[in-house]
């Protein structure tokens, strides 16, 4: 049941042109990032969560300012399988725009935080949303010239999603 949700998330994120990698456990995160990212690129990573702590071995030079970074590596709040979306939240003092300014966004998503549907997610946050909630589905895009798709307008031209861990036995958000 819930592995179906995970499969659906990966399928729909892929349809929206995100690059999805599945990692069985957090221990292989550093290795995966080393393979994924060009060495020497300026990387911003807040380093606030356990996953982000595990990612700080990311190759390249760390920069403290997202505005100066080429790549943002960060843990995101949740995933939504129905649309293949990520959710970024301002809760806990996080800068949602850090996922917007660099040309590449690498999202770390715990598999346990994937909701099945939009309804499930919005029912969970409806009562008290934080100042900013942003659903991200694929890279920045436009079709304003002859309806021809162009990628990386104002936001990232490439979105990587690293789904970490196994799907839980219950529905995401329950009991949290």
């Amino acid at each position: 049941m819930t592995s179906e949700v995970l499969e659906l998330f990966i399928e729909n994120a892929g349809k929206a042109a995100a690059h999805v990698v599945r990692l069985a456990k957090v221990e292989v995160l550093g290795q995966a990032l080393a393979e994924l990212l060009p060495s020497g690129a300026a990387v911003y990573c807040p380093g606030k969560t356990a996953l982000e702590q595990a990612a700080v071995t990311v190759p390249g030079k760390r920069v403290p300012e997202y505005a100066a970074a080429e790549i943002c590596v960060e843990e995101v709040e949740a995933g939504i399988a129905e649309t293949g979306s990520l959710v970024c939240s301002s809760a806990g003092g996080r800068a949602v725009q850090a996922s917007l300014l660099p040309d590449r966004h690498v999202a770390l998503l715990p598999a346990a935080k994937i909701f099945a549907t939009l309804d499930d997610y919005f029912a969970a946050v409806a009562a008290a949303p934080p100042a900013n909630l942003t659903l991200i589905t694929g890279p920045s895009r436009t079709a304003d010239i002859e309806l021809t798709l162009a990628i990386g307008v104002h936001g990232p031209a490439r979105l990587d999603i690293l789904v970490v861990g196994e799907a839980p036995a219950g529905i995401a958000g329950e009991g949290s």
Binding site: S85, Q97, A131, N132, I136
Partner: peptide
């Protein structure tokens, strides 16, 4: 769905960065 859906609820709160 669009690439982005922003939900803005009020202003930046104390200690926040967005």
């Amino acid at each position: 769905i669009t690439s982005y859906l922003s939900l803005i609820t009020g202003t930046r709160r104390p200690g926040e960065a967005t």
